[in-house]
Design a protein around this nucleic acid. Structure first.
Lengths: 234, 234, 234, 234
DNA sequence: GATGAATGAGCGTTCATTCAT
DNA sequence: GATGAATGAACGCTCATTCAT
């Protein structure tokens, strides 16, 4: 199938390791310079392997792009659940999810833009697979929203639309990074946005929890955010 | 300067006409297939001119991209003021501006995505020029917001942030068109979004006007929106 | 015939005038940058005419080269007899001829090199024509030599070989101009060379005349030679 | 530096071998047709390699020209010392040097002309390097002259001027090959020229040696000269 | 007669991909 | 499994030449 990326090498650990090297290099280079402008030679060089080796783990230059984009999307899918571990309060979980999402994006702005810029360079079926991955991320957010609704913390809302707006707002941090970067931390940015978006949604009973969560210092800073300014309560 | 695109032909009308042909073809092709994948030969062919002719009006392939992106951004700057002509009520003007913005985007989804995808392929100074163009569009929206604030229709708000959210929301129609396209018209999409975003912002006195404007059928459908389904009141 | 350069314009004075403009520009540009590197556009620009005009007086880019080379060679054929006018003494005529030759070359070093560099770019028959022109120049020199021989001023010599050496010596001023230029004037250069070459050739009776002619200051400096240092008698 | 020609392949033997192939083809083609008229494809074809391969050993077309010209000049520098090996008599060495020079030129007339025709196509620094190479060749000749002077075989002469004349005379064999080729061998040509040029220079004591050397049949014909006619003693 | 916009063949160069070692 | 030299299709771009005005 066009979806499969075939490797001439069989040993799974080797495939994992080599592809890891290659993709790391590729994501950096594609993210910085763009996919089409980056040559396989450059990727090989940066990954400290030979050109030939790449073609043992991948059939195509396009395969590299595909794997790279999948890897970026997967990193979102790994990070968000990680941030949720141990949290039980729905409001807390919701906020944690959004912040986790924002932070992965902030940590890899170029990679995020890469997804936006180069998804179209892929064939139809692979684009669909990527879309599915994105929907999975969204699901993590909308699950958190629905939990809040069920817990009576949010009004009954158009969950899909709200999810969509939140996700777009997170992505916008990367898409328009020149606008707020340097002036705001990702966390401050998210809090301001959430407050605006949730105002009409949070129930009176949810409001306390929301305020508490939103205004407390970020629980786990993570390596993603370098500077952190005190968030000013709206 | 790197910003200037020089033409070997002097006659301004000819430059206008030929560049028009070339850019139309380029925007279509770049929008559909991507910039790097599209050859100058393809552009020439689609514009029904010879390869050589393109190079009489442009110094290199990157110039074509630059002019294409400028043209797309300029079309926004042309359309929004057009939609405002004759309108005096601030609320009406605000809504008209947003809907006009949304409609140009809807009319040229691929072109909008093109801007997102390929701006990075340009050199620094040209990227800055494009950013300036975008800020001009945003200004049109934020002016409309401020007028509403002055008229007491909106609360005093963080105008910059609100503008930003609205703009991103419009762009999102293109960026995530697969999500709502076919299920919603651009106007319905905008109304739903605006309602969500403005809820905490509109003053009681503004509310009547807002509802009136937002729920009436789109005044001038324009050529942008093909299908139009009745908007369901939220 | 391939030798003919056809003009679309009939009026001979016009052809003369226009070709003059074109060739002046062409010789300058070809001489400085080389024939292949120079575009017809550049020639047109420098000649202050349009590209199209050139093609009314010439069929080909190669035609321009051909005419240019002919013009250079013809200028030699014009200058040498001019310098001989009024002179009757064979020895004087001989020296005048050589110096005249040297001076045209000095005056148009680039043009002379052009002939060496680009003759091969022409088709066979035209190359032959050029060769014939060169032989005509040589004839002027060898005629002068033979007159000296007949007058008993030179021994009976291998006239052909001597002519050849003198001609090459003149050309060498252009071919290796970096070697003596600035250190010697063309006249000093010629005198030194002639003395060396003629030593075994001049008869005792010729010697007085030779010394007299060779060591007197150049009769007509001409515009060609800028600096002029007193020739040191060998 | 602009002087260096960089190769993407590191292995020195391979570089040597491949460049050898490429340059052989290039010198032949450039020599026959001219540099600008010859395409890289033609060179590749004649060298029996692919176009791409050339660009692994050279950065651009101009590099090929540069290496070609250097190779031609170097072949002079290799051949002359070779012809001197084992010879001790200054007069013998002088004649051997000149004949060796003449023979390499005769063996590669087109290559010699190539140097004259295309040196100007190179950038300044490379042109200087070539000039330096030529001066090295000249040095070999002038060293031989000076040895003769020291041995009392030549009068004290303007060594520089004499060297220059001899060198030009050798080059002239190529530059004006149409004149004597077929009628004279290179050796006969050289002997005649030398006799003329050296007449006023050779001392009585040197004369015997000179005549002996000059009129004996060429010691080592070498592969350079194909036809050989008996030299007629002057 | 003169112009210069338009054409398109053809060149230099790149780079994804292969395959002998 | 890994290497990197070799290939050649294909692209961006130039420029001699034409021809409508």
């Amino acid at each position: 199938m066009a979806l499969q990326v075939v490797s001439k090498v069989e040993v799974p650990e080797l495939v994992e390791k080599r592809r890891g090297q290659i993709l790391k290099a590729a994501i950096e280079l594609y993210g910085r310079q763009g996919y089409h402008v980056t040559t396989i030679r450059e990727v090989a060089h940066r990954a400290k392997v030979s050109v030939g080796l790449i073609y043992q783990y991948v059939a195509d230059k396009e395969d590299v792009l595909f794997l790279a984009l999948v890897e970026v999307l997967d990193s979102y899918l790994r990070e968000i659940p990680l941030a949720l571990e141990g949290l039980t309060d729905p409001m807390e979980r919701f906020c944690a999810a959004v912040h986790a999402y924002g932070r992965v994006i902030d940590a890899r702005i170029d990679a995020t833009l890469l997804v936006y810029r180069e998804t179209k360079s892929l064939g139809r079926p692979r684009r669909e697979l990527l879309k599915a991955r994105e929907i999975q991320s969204n699901q993590l957010i909308s699950d958190a929203i629905e939990a809040c609704v069920r817990a009576g913390l949010f009004d009954a809302v158009d969950v899909e639309m709200l999810t969509y707006m939140i996700v777009m707002f997170c992505h916008a941090w990367a898409l328009k990074s020149w606008r707020f970067r340097g002036r705001l931390t990702i966390d401050a940015y998210l809090d301001r946005g959430l407050k605006l978006m949730l105002e009409p949604v949070v129930t009176p009973s949810g409001r306390r929890g929301f305020l508490a969560v939103a205004s407390r210092p970020a629980a786990a800073p993570g390596p993603a955010t370098k500077a952190r300014k005190p968030r000013r309560p709206a």
